[in-house]
């Protein structure tokens, strides 16, 4: 297990590095895909079965797919993006420093309080995903719809607002009128015009 973890860790970091260093956007996407995949395996190893599956379905299956869509539409050529002067080194050094410090804090915190993979039913054991075992679908759903119902619904609401906003911004600006009614309106206008013309 330890070997698998370290192998995955190396792969994860390597694929993440590849994502940000790749010259072509599509290579970045491929790297990200690999990264998500390794991440899902890591979740599996941590018994977080549902999270692993959702990671693949939502992030790899839908969100990354949109990236591919956009890239395919925007840069049909395979030439790398022409970027301006390379400012990466200037930002990279302080950024790396900050991230390293933050990670250090996190690692310190973790080492003080060891994480136990457990829930109210006890320590994780048994076949992965069986009800009552940490990270199982049943447990996840239960927790989502009881203890954490409010945050879940609020998140859903916020996403919904965002979606409606997108539709308002990008959508058709002509107000929707059913065809038949539109035809009737046109007909009425014409008739009125004719009547008016007759009166004059």
């Amino acid at each position: 297990m330890t070997i698998a973890f370290w192998a995955l860790a190396v792969l994860l970091v390597a694929s993440a590095m590849f994502v940000i260093t790749a010259k072509k956007p599509v290579h970045s996407v491929a790297g990200l895909l690999a990264h998500f995949f390794f991440l899902a395996i890591t979740y599996f190893m941590l018994s977080a079965e549902f999270l692993a599956v959702i990671q693949l379905i939502v992030y790899s299956g839908a969100i990354l797919m949109l990236f591919v869509f956009v890239i395919a539409l925007l840069s049909s050529g395979v030439a790398p993006f022409s970027v301006g002067p390379d400012r990466l080194p200037k930002i990279a050094a302080p950024a790396t420093l900050i991230v390293a410090v933050l990670l250090g804090f996190v690692a310190y915190g973790i080492s003080r309080e060891p994480i136990v993979l457990a829930n109210e039913h006890g320590v994780a054991a048994g076949p992965v995903g069986a009800a009552g075992v940490f990270g199982s679908v049943a447990d996840f759903g239960h927790a989502l719809f009881t203890t954490n119902l409010l945050p879940f619904e609020i998140t859903a609401f916020i996403l919904m607002v965002a979606v409606i906003g997108v539709i308002l911004l990008a959508g058709d600006h002509v107000p929707y009128v059913p065809t038949r009614r539109r035809a009737r309106i046109v007909e009425r206008d014409m008739r009125e015009a004719i009547v008016r013309a007759g009166e004059e």
Binding site: F50, A52, V68, S136
Partner: peptide, 29 residues
């Protein structure tokens, strides 16, 4: 696997990358 159907959905959702990346990488219209 207990989440069998979800695992299948997850894996098949990756499968499409073969098509979309392959089509893109061919470099023709």
């Amino acid at each position: 696997v207990n989440a069998g159907i979800l695992v299948i959905l997850a894996i098949t959702s990756i499968g499409v990358y073969g098509i979309s990346l392959g089509g893109w990488a061919s470099g023709s219209k």
